[in-house]
Design a protein around this nucleic acid. Sequence first.
DNA 1: GGTAATTGCACCATCGATGGTGCATAAATG
DNA 2: CATTTATGCACCATCGATGGTGCAATTACC
Lengths: 357, 357
Amino acid sequence: MSEKERKKATIYDLSVVSGASPSTVASVLNGTWRKRRISEETAAKILSLAREHDYKANLQARALRSSRSGLVGLLLPVYDNRFFSSMAQTFESEARKRGLVPMVVSGRRDPEEERRTVESLIAYAIDSLFIAGATDPDGVHEICMRAGLPHVNIDLPGKFASSVIADNRQGAEALTSAIIRHAETLGPLHSGDVYLFGGRNDHASRERIAGFHAVKQSVFGAVTKGDIEITGYSPSATALAFDRFFDKHGRLPKCFFINSSINFEGLLRFMGRHDGETFGDIVVGCFDYDPFASFLPFPVYMIRPNISKMLERGFDLLEEPKPLTIMIEPELVPPRTALEGPLDALNDPSPPFVFAD
Amino acid sequence: MSEKERKKATIYDLSVVSGASPSTVASVLNGTWRKRRISEETAAKILSLAREHDYKANLQARALRSSRSGLVGLLLPVYDNRFFSSMAQTFESEARKRGLVPMVVSGRRDPEEERRTVESLIAYAIDSLFIAGATDPDGVHEICMRAGLPHVNIDLPGKFASSVIADNRQGAEALTSAIIRHAETLGPLHSGDVYLFGGRNDHASRERIAGFHAVKQSVFGAVTKGDIEITGYSPSATALAFDRFFDKHGRLPKCFFINSSINFEGLLRFMGRHDGETFGDIVVGCFDYDPFASFLPFPVYMIRPNISKMLERGFDLLEEPKPLTIMIEPELVPPRTALEGPLDALNDPSPPFVFAD
DNA sequence: GGTAATTGCACCATCGATGGTGCATAAATG
DNA sequence: CATTTATGCACCATCGATGGTGCAATTACC
């Protein structure tokens, strides 16, 4: 038996060994056999033969016939960032919890590539798609429409499709208040001491900037011009922005808001070029979450979206007939707080022990 | 045309509109038409009709018929960790570069779940599998064997399958030397000041521990007993280990080697519980790479595997008839150095600009 | 004992694409 | 002009699973 298992067993093989027809075998194996009035006895025999021959359904064939593949896609811009990789992790559990198989792809912030990768998913007949952070959501939406593919946006504004978004405005306000309050405990603070770096002309950035300015307005009564430096989502462009600021003012702002952890990496690169300087007197807010950032030598406040709630609501929205938008409040993470992540849900199979050496 | 595109066009649809047979249409669309002596003219007509009807091949059907799916799997333990998410990112490019579609899944360090996820990949008829960091590589290997699935281990020792591994021994030696050298510049150092935290009874940990001890041996002439605290791959267990050490000695070791960034998170959690203490006098080595760790208030040396080279060699090894093992040297990253990551390869489509506010 | 209802399953077309084979028609060759 | 060779394509079985339909054999019922 272990020798002959070179080729995978099919329902036809089981049909031969069991003496039942292929369709009977199929219905036993896919669980529809009661509906088809297959006898308990026949079913039991086929199930035991299936186990014996290590039968595994060919899902490609099933998908082809039934036009339901059991695949759910997730389009990310990139993987290697705490937010998106954590989303991939959570997405995988949520998908499997629902009996689906996740296909996670990245569009690398390139509209052309986003389209291509989504088309490759469609070619494999995924049943639905989660779009998280596409550069060109409308282009992706268009493709999904044409393919009749149900889809939801995650953390993207939904002009056409359903969306679950973090409350960027509220989050930015919370973050801005937090850093201003902290910076004020360190000394007098003026509107001109409070900056924002990063972002781009997208919905999320606009909302965050609006929240940032709203808080500055209410705290200082006025908003300084030029308190925002747009850098796109690039570590190197952000590092350059800090270089420029530093060259001009001889220091960093007392207090600033960084649009994402990618931009935060830009700050780190800038600091890498200024070894020896401690930058202990700055207060930073980062609209993103990375546990490491929590332990830098200066206070870092972060905003952490509630990813699993967002995804859960996303699966709900797939059922919805018409486009809806749901907002989920993110969480403010104070400095030096290492929160739990999806890794904590893992059980580490080998218990700790000490090597005999 | 845009109205009627509700259902996806098939070769049969194109066969009707073009007047050619389905097999002719298929061969034109999959590029085998010259071999089949289809005329230039017919091919051109069909290609133009295909474009017009937005034809996209159903890859499930193709896979079923040709028993080549064009899917490559990557099994990770987890996504949300710099090393593995960076691997996912690089894997995706490498796969697409080869005309394949990546399917990345995580086994969450659970042998049972690893098996299940790999079986789900096999059910979709993936052509080959990259195994990175499985808890039970032999179990996975067994399943692949049974399914006749070509597979390579990445950064795992290859008892049965081909492997590309980081040189853990050499990397651990480089890392240990680096932190000892640094710590020695801060004051006198004894063998008892140099510890290792994290890891587990797996190949990588064993090699790293061997390298660690070899260097201690050569520097101090002897190895202290009990200089190693095994914690498994869990942030919380690692935090507890630091707690224990701290409770016993009233401080952290002057100089220590942390087995992975997951264990590193444990250090951060420990520090979160000791706010106010700066821990400025420690020197840390982390056998893993996270750009944020580079900028903590104490020196952190890191080891960063050359992921893209490992994956490239992995694709090569798939062709190989018999199991081979290849070692790739990792890179030592000194403190306060922010290196480039895969994100730098992305082009940020919207150029930086400043909001008019 | 004859008809009706139920049970248990087999048959067959189908999903979309592929590739081996074979057969007209046209062109080349002697 | 007869025969060989080349050209261009159609036909058909096939990959593995599914689900509608139909039909014998058994059981129930009057």
